[in-house]
Design a protein around this nucleic acid. Sequence first.
DNA 1: ACGTAAATAATTTGATCAAATTAATTGATA
DNA 2: TATCAATTAATTTGATCAAATTATTTACGT
Lengths: 233, 233
Amino acid sequence: MGGYGLKHAREPESQSKMNKVVVKKPEHETIYVQIKEMVLFGEVVPGQPLTIHGLAEKLGAGVTPVREAIRRLTAEGGLATLENRRVVVPTMTMHWLEQIELVRLTVEPELAEIGAKKCGLDRILELERLDALIDEAIQKGDIRGYLEANYRFHFTIYDAADALILRRITESLWVRIGPSLRVVCGRFGTANLTDQHREATKGLRDGDLEKVKRALQEDIRQGMEFIRQTIEV
Amino acid sequence: MGGYGLKHAREPESQSKMNKVVVKKPEHETIYVQIKEMVLFGEVVPGQPLTIHGLAEKLGAGVTPVREAIRRLTAEGGLATLENRRVVVPTMTMHWLEQIELVRLTVEPELAEIGAKKCGLDRILELERLDALIDEAIQKGDIRGYLEANYRFHFTIYDAADALILRRITESLWVRIGPSLRVVCGRFGTANLTDQHREATKGLRDGDLEKVKRALQEDIRQGMEFIRQTIEV
DNA sequence: ACGTAAATAATTTGATCAAATTAATTGATA
DNA sequence: TATCAATTAATTTGATCAAATTATTTACGT
């Protein structure tokens, strides 16, 4: 009975100073976010090997937090550790792509529908801002900018759904896709990316949930199709 | 271009001695499995606080591997870190349960169908062995035994599907469920657990895939329903 | 008793180092 | 030149410790 070491648990309590909450996050948390964004936004390429020391140096951190961050990201599928203990960015396979598509098509429209219902005006404005950012990045051919704005667009809707588990599953699929999307953009250029975001935003404005859902579905299908074409058989 | 620190990558190569492959896994890997099984098989209770030192002591390990294992399990949802940095076994909520059920009902029947097609005789025999183990555990009221055999039964089928991503998603849902199942068994006793495994095994024997799928679906629904009843509103 | 601040204890966190493991290089031999 | 073993280099891994953070207890005043 009882925890292994902890006697009594108390409510979490963030120390607050002068009406302003102060929460100093541990470094492994920060590092985790940074590496995740490297993967998510295409700063890293499928098959690329990573080393703990290399990451620690690049991110100006010690080796201990980096290790914890890597384990976490590995659990989410964004990275993989080979049996030689080397860490790499996984390479997409057709087999994986099919599985990812199945789950994305189940979970993301659901998230979008729930989220769309709960989107307040502030969030819709944010989405329109991101929509403009996406267009701009496409114009400029800014791959990193596109990937980041695209991610934030989707997850702004998903976050509104307030469905932690679906959200985490979805995120784990996105970190698997990130490096491949980078390849897609490099291969086909950003200009060829059709833009479902405008449709989704309009649907949001008009309260047309079905339109939002369809737009997101189409967005997913197209994205997956692009990636499919970059996988050598 | 190139990894952050690694110059050239080579094929993974397990050193083999005398025709027998030797792979010494790192301790954080072993620890991870141990903690996961604690969660999965109900050795740990919803809300229970865990400490790094406590786990390290219990598992006879250093603190470093335990930390990495915890991060990994946290990423999978089996544990959660509060903002006070304390690690706890998450408590199930109705909201979470609904999300878990949605994904389980999508992914697991799919895994079961693909897996069932690929189940060779050896695997079917293994399933029948596990089926007997489940019955035995139910008879004895052995909660841990039931949870473990039940887990191995399902994942023996799922593993046959050879669908890594679906499998990892499913596992992440099971670690979220484990502690609650333990509560269910404690509350209702093992005797009340209806047994869909027999049905599934028979379907497997007769090559009746639909029967397997239906049995698993029913199994999921019942399990979720039991958990639902233990959640206080 | 009650609440509050200070003191103490427990825990997490991150750096560092030695050992273990793995990769790359060298050199000898055919 | 090609192959294979030995050597060297690079990397991961796990223990340990000091510092930071958080929890608990004690002391004190009302």
